[in-house]
């Protein structure tokens, strides 16, 4: 059991020892190890996205009483690979009137920001790239950087739909950032720390979803809007805006946006399970990292379920819902948590 539990941490330590044995200086060994960790993260992200896209198509099919992809491989599981190959072979169009620099940078920036989130997100016990005392603040602030990438793409494309989609994305993401941060504040007040490892460690006896149910609900709703997923997918509302900020993007550039969205989805779900659902704590017959991913995948499935069940809501209703409902509720939760802490501590 211990071997599986320490599979990744032990491997990291072994590689570090090996590098030291090669008489490399300490700092160089650390840098090489960090680089290897990043490679592993990128691998995990890409495999995750390939699985998720197939899973979403399959599950949307089942929800609509269809079969979903089933011609390529068992259960159609090679469908995403075929799609990726096709997208790699597509012509790369940059519109003549586009702002070329912004247009080219935007998708790269979106994916870089999405992968940066994994620097602090815990994947199992002691399995964080960096574990520093403001990691939750880092997560929230970096996650909101993605808005900038979307706006760069929308502005750079020089297209009406792109610009309108980008404006919507900015408005939506900024207004939902507020309840997201406030709902996490309740957890931070209980643990007194912004460090993921401490927040998870504090949940050894009771998960925070039982202490902070309101915060969990507001976090989940706000996260749905942050991810631009249905029913809050206003920025790329197909019926009104063709494809929102992605309207002018072709082939792999568009695929990068798509990749980044799913990367964000996994990161947010990992975060959700770490903050509210006890992270790596679980019965000992499975290793900590397996529990982490099982919980995260459960939330991903819930996200799929919501997206394919609920209709899209109107833009003004969306903003109203954030400012008139979610923000007061999450603020009230902060007050309630404070009172609770005064009474019971």
């Amino acid at each position: 059991m211990n071997v599986i539990e320490n599979l990744f941490t032990g491997l990291g330590a072994m590689i570090y020892d090996f590098l030291i044995w090669l008489t490399l200086p300490d700092w160089l060994a650390a840098v090489i190890l960090l680089f290897l960790k990043w490679l592993l993260i990128i691998l995990v992200v890409i495999v995750d996205v390939i699985i998720l896209i197939w899973l979403e198509r399959k599950i949307s099919g089942y929800i609509q009483q269809r079969l979903g992809p089933n011609r390529l491989g068992p259960g159609g599981c090679f469908q995403t690979i075929a799609d990726t190959l096709k997208l790699m072979g597509k012509e790369d169009i940059i519109p003549r009137t586009a702002d070329k620099v912004l247009f080219v940078i935007a998708p790269a920036m979106f994916i870089i920001v999405a992968v940066m989130l994994y620097a602090v997100v815990p994947m199992g016990k002691d399995m964080m790239i960096v574990d520093f005392d403001l990691s939750m603040l880092f997560f929230i602030s970096v996650a909101s950087l993605g808005t900038l990438a979307l706006f760069m793409g929308g502005w750079g494309s020089d297209n009406k739909w792109s610009l309108m989609g980008a404006m919507r994305a900015v408005a939506q993401m900024i207004s939902y950032e507020v309840p997201l941060a406030f709902s996490l504040l309740g957890v931070v007040m209980i643990t007194g720390s912004l460090q993921f490892s401490e927040i998870v460690a504090a949940q050894e006896n009771i998960w925070f979803v039982f202490l902070q149910p309101i915060a969990f609900v507001t976090y989940f709703i706000a996260a749905t809007a942050e991810l631009n997923r249905g029913p809050f997918d206003m920025p790329e509302a197909e019926q009104e805006l063709t494809a929102g900020p992605y309207t002018e993007y072709t082939g792999m550039r568009w695929a990068l946006f798509f990749l980044a969205e799913y990367t964000n989805l996994v990161a947010v779900c990992l975060m959700c399970s770490a903050v509210f659902f006890g992270g790596w704590h679980g019965p000992a017959f499975l290793p900590s990292w397996a529990w982490m991913f099982i919980k995260a995948y459960f939330f991903i499935l819930v996200f799929f379920w919501i997206k394919w069940t609920l209709p899209r809501i109107r833009m003004d209703k969306l903003m109203e819902f954030s400012w008139k409902f979610l923000v007061p509720v999450s603020l009230g939760n902060v007050l309630l948590t404070g009172v609770g802490l005064m009474l019971f501590r």
């Binding site: 099919g61 079969l67 979903g68 992809p69 011609r71 390529l72 159609g76 799609d83 197909e238 063709t242």
Partner: peptide, 12 residues
Amino acid sequence: DIARFGYEVFRS
């Protein structure tokens, strides 16, 4: 169900 063949992604 056109999705069986993987052709269901109607792009607007």
